[in-house]
Every structure is written in C-alpha cells, then in structure tokens.
C-alpha cells in the first residue's frame, strides 16, 4: 500500500471539510449559527440540571427551584415537563429562519 499522501489527489488545504475550521462564506456562517444553537441547547438541557445541583439543599435535590410553584407545578417540574419541549421547537424554528435567509442570500449571489 502506498502510505505516502498523494499530493495531487489531496484537495487543497482550503477545500477541506472540518467542523472546527469551516470554509468562509455559507458554511462558516452556518457553522457559527449551529454553535449558538448547540450552546443554548446544551445550556437549557444540562445547564439547568447543574443549576439544580448547585442550589440543592438536600441530597434529593430539594432547592428553591423545586419549592417555587408555577402553573400549579413545582418550577423544575414545569421547566422539564412543559417548557423545554417548547424551547426545542423554538430552536428548530430559529434554525429554519436563519437557514432560509442564508440560503436566499447565497443562491442569489450565484
């Protein structure tokens, strides 16, 4: 087997697909937006659980967040049971609005 990288067959350094080094233009803008959405996805899902741990007063996790009542539910219960699904729907919505705009821009330019 020829293990030496074949320079001719290798796409140039600029034309590589790498999530952490997106190509300028469409891909870079899209990846930036993906980062923002991923961050809010992670914060609202896992960040909230960390918050519960940080604020807990006893090992079972009782905290001001679990004692406050909202719409008849303990706050953390309402958050995980009802709010976060809405939040996910909103994230998908935002992604779609953004991609619609971005695609519009780049299709026109072509």
């Amino acid at each position: 087997m020829n293990t030496e990288p074949d320079r001719q067959n290798e796409p140039s350094e600029k034309g590589r697909i790498n999530f952490f080094r997106p190509l300028p233009g469409f891909m870079r803008k899209k990846v930036h937006y993906i980062w923002v959405l991923l961050a809010s996805w992670a914060c609202f899902t896992f960040g909230f659980q960390f918050l519960l741990v940080l604020l807990e007063k006893s090992p079972d996790g009782s905290s001001p967040l679990t004692e406050k009542i909202l719409f008849g539910f303990p706050f953390h219960y309402w958050y995980s049971g009802q709010f976060i699904i809405l939040w996910f729907i909103l994230l998908c919505l935002l992604y779609n609005l953004f991609v619609d705009r971005l695609t519009g821009q780049y299709r026109k330019r072509k």
Partner: peptide, 27 residues
C-alpha cells in the same frame, strides 16, 4: 396543565410524588 393540581395533591407524600430531582437517580 390540569395535572399540576393533581401533583400538588400527591406532594403531601414526597416518596410517592417523586418530584424531587435526584430521588430516583443521581445527576
């Protein structure tokens, strides 16, 4: 939404309600 009130009713028995975050599993 209505089951919020039902949850309040069983909160008098915390072990039954199981609303405490880490009652049935660690973070």
């Amino acid at each position: 939404i209505g089951y919020g009130a039902a949850l309040q009713e069983i909160l008098s028995r915390p072990d039954l309600a199981g609303t405490a975050p880490w009652l049935h599993g660690t973070p």
